[in-house]
Structure formats: structure tokens, C-alpha cells
């Protein structure tokens, strides 16, 4: 049982939790993640560690409501528990002095990019950060990213905040302006990471992406998280989650992440239906009719 000490929405559908997990807090390094199982019948899902406080034995995770498990998690508050939290998993980001590093965070990916950006800054790198979101209220960690960046650019898809466009537009400008870039770290939706890889490949800029494939145990046992990197199977949980973007088969990752789309949609629909039913007095017995659901 892991206690939630603090929980707050930092954007619509995006919640930050402070969780008591002293062993994990002590060991966590930027780039690593945890796997959680919220309750007994729950699935195991990987989640980003945003930061940790070793002295207080607390880790901070950022969760975006996408499927049933993340919706359920985001309905929890301080004083609630999470049944299992295991980690820190994956190989930590390589922290060294590279020179100028462009750190790109798309959506909730910014939470994964942030601790690495901070560590790279401390290691003496010049950090140019590009944070993107669909619209104004979904821009997260702006203040935190600003603190660890020499310069910070923000884009929104709909132009409701900062510059309208995508993070890749900003990267293209940097390249076109002849800015010397020694490393790019991109964390976000797969199409974004793929676009970044396409842009830096020709320029021969070393580029890392943090992948989030289907995963169960997170310790190298199940092989569900296999990704094709340079034509070779690698396991994101033990070999990653960061990989050389120019060698990753992103299309395959998209395809494999679709495996349980139907089941995921059904779980979410039933969860939301139940929640609504619970909210409505007297409606609890009506049951939830979801297309294709077994009785």
C-alpha cells in the first residue's frame, strides 16, 4: 500500500500526485518510471516519475486521464492509497556535458522530460526547451521548465497560448537559424517523436526519445514492451525507455500500442458509466449497457 500525500490537477485531466515511496525516492534518477497497480483487480501500467524528494521519501508522478486506470487514478486524492508502486524502472537518462541540448516535451511528456532537463542543466549544458500542448490550459510545468532552461519556447496547437503550431516548428527554426545542437531529447506523443526524428536525422543531430509501449512487469520478464530499434528487438523496460530516435520503428510502435484499443475503450466506457450511475441517486441499479459487453 502506498499512501497518496498530496494530489492536485495541474491541467484539465492531468493530475500530480505525491506518493510515499521512500525506497523509490531514494533511487530515482531522471528518465526512470514506475509501474502502478491501483487496486486488486487493476492492470499494471507504467507512469512517469516527475521528481522525487529523498529526504521526505516522496515521489511525484504526473498522470493524464486516458483510459480506465488513469481515470481511476485521477479520481484519487490525498489520504487514498495505491495498492502497488514499483520502481524506479528503466535505465536512467545519460547525464553528461553534451553542449547545447534541445529538450522537447509534448503534452504530458513534458513531465518525463523535465527531470532530465534539470539534470542536464546541472551538468553544465545549455538547455533550449520547447514545450507543446494542444491548447493553453494543457501547458504543464511551464515554471519548472523555465527554471532549468536557458531559453524556453512554448507552442499550442490552437494558438490559445504562446505561439500557434507544433514543437517541431520551433525545432525547424532552430536548425534553420544555424543554432548548433548537440543533442535533442523528445518526449511526447509518438507522431511528435517520429516527426522530430525525421527532422534531425538528415542534420545528423543525436536524438533520444522516451518510449511508452505496452508493458506489464517492467522488469524484462514479459517482453510485451519490445520495440524495434535498428532492426533489432529491444525491451523498453530494461534496454530503455530512451532510445536513439533515428533507429526506432515508430510505425510499429503505433501498431502494437493499438493491440488492446477495443478492450481499452470498453473498460473506459463501463467505468465512466458506472461512475455516472453512482452519481445519480437511484440510478445505480440500472446497470451499464455497453456495446459488445457480456452480461
Amino acid at each position: 500500500m502506498f499512501n497518496i500525500l498530496h494530489a492536485e490537477f495541474i491541467a484539465p485531466g492531468i493530475k500530480r500526485f505525491h506518493i510515499e515511496a521512500s525506497r523509490i525516492a531514494r533511487k530515482q534518477r531522471p528518465g526512470q518510471f514506475v509501474i502502478v497497480r491501483v487496486y486488486e483487480e487493476g492492470e499494471r501500467i507504467p507512469l512517469t516519475i516527475e521528481s522525487s524528494d529523498n529526504a521526505r521519501g516522496i515521489i511525484s508522478i504526473v498522470v493524464q486521464s486516458l483510459g480506465k486506470t488513469t481515470h481511476l487514478l485521477n479520481s484519487l486524492n490525498a489520504g487514498d492509497h495505491i495498492l502497488d508502486v514499483v520502481g524506479p524502472l528503466g535505465r536512467p537518462s545519460e547525464i553528461a556535458k553534451f553542449g547545447t541540448v534541445v529538450v522537447m516535451g509534448g503534452g504530458v511528456g513534458t513531465a518525463m522530460a523535465y527531470p532530465t532537463a534539470a539534470a542536464l542543466k546541472r551538468a553544465g549544458n545549455r538547455i533550449i526547451s520547447i514545450v507543446g500542448a494542444r491548447s493553453r490550459e494543457l501547458v504543464i510545468l511551464e515554471r519548472e521548465m523555465r527554471e532549468v532552461s536557458d531559453s524556453l519556447m512554448i507552442t499550442t496547437d490552437d494558438g490559445t497560448y504562446a505561439d500557434k503550431g507544433f514543437v517541431t516548428d520551433k525545432l525547424r527554426q532552430l536548425i534553420q537559424n544555424g543554432v548548433r545542437i548537440d543533442l535533442v531529447l523528445a518526449v511526447g506523443p509518438i507522431p511528435m517523436m517520429k516527426a522530430v526524428a525525421g527532422m534531425t536525422r538528415g542534420e545528423r543531430i543525436r536524438t533520444l526519445v522516451s518510449l511508452n509501449p505496452i508493458m506489464i512487469d517492467g522488469t524484462g520478464m514479459c517482453g510485451g514492451c519490445r520495440v524495434l530499434v535498428g532492426g533489432k528487438s529491444e525491451f523498453a523496460c530494461v534496454d530503455g525507455p530512451e532510445f536513439d530516435a533515428h533507429r526506432v520503428d515508430f510505425d510499429l510502435l503505433v501498431q502494437r500500442n493499438r493491440t488492446y484499443r477495443a478492450q481499452e475503450q470498453r473498460s473506459l466506457a463501463e467505468f465512466q458509466c458506472e461512475r455516472e450511475a453512482r452519481g445519480k441517486r437511484g440510478a445505480a441499479d440500472e446497470g451499464c449497457a455497453v456495446e459488445g459487453a457480456r452480461p
Binding site: 483487480e41 492492470e43 499494471r44 480506465k68 486506470t69 506489464i216 493491440t259 473498460s267
Partner: peptide, 10 residues
């Protein structure tokens, strides 16, 4: 036992 248990399976 999906959907009683959340982990999906083909």
C-alpha cells in the same frame, strides 16, 4: 476475467 479484471487480453 476481463472486464472484471482490468488487464486486457486478445
Amino acid at each position: 476475467k476481463f472486464p472484471t479484471y482490468d488487464q486486457p487480453m486478445v
